[in-house]
């Protein structure tokens, strides 16, 4: 990836359902403003939303970053949280560790990470138990 021309950060609070989705929404608006293709924006918006929701659902707090380079967009979601015990298992559709309350709200379908994988061109997950998780997603846009 070439040096990013624009970098935006958004903080995300764990458990803050009311504000959940705002970071993804701001990312979407920023991309629209600079004229990124609508199909690419859709993919980024979905992946960013899911990453943001994972912080809200599972972590204490976290940060979302959007990097815009000439050929690529990168979304980084890093959090202070429990980490992912088994990444392969977490990538399986239907697997979830979300709370009962979250499930009643329609979260915890076990589709977040699979959606992120589907929407991004590459996804890298770094996680340390009881410390946190960092998800890096790249999107080609040229």
């Amino acid at each position: 990836m070439t040096t990013p021309g624009m970098v935006l950060h958004f903080s995300v609070e764990g458990g803050d359902f009311a504000a959940a989705g705002e970071a993804a929404s701001k990312i979407k608006k920023a991309l629209r403003k600079i004229g990124i293709d609508a199909g690419v924006i859709r993919r980024v918006a979905i992946a960013a939303y899911e990453a943001e929701m994972n912080i809200v659902l599972h972590a204490r707090r976290g940060r979302m970053t959007l990097e815009v380079a000439e050929d690529k967009l990168r979304v980084i979601a890093e959090d202070e949280g429990p980490g992912i015990a088994d990444v392969d298992q977490a990538m399986q559709e239907g697997f979830s560790t979300a709370s009962d309350l979250a499930r009643e709200m329609g979260f915890g379908a076990g589709m977040g990470l699979p959606n992120m994988k589907k929407c991004s061109d590459t996804i890298t997950i770094e996680t340390v138990k009881d410390r946190g998780t960092k998800v890096i997603m790249d999107f080609n846009h040229r």
């Binding site: 979905i46 899911e50 929701m53 709200m105 329609g106 979260f107 379908a109 589709m111 699979p114 959606n115």
Partner: peptide
């Protein structure tokens, strides 16, 4: 009623 299902499958 599953938000991620809607996210992944509903169209514009």
């Amino acid at each position: 009623d599953l938000l991620s299902d809607v996210m992944g499958n509903a169209g514009e």
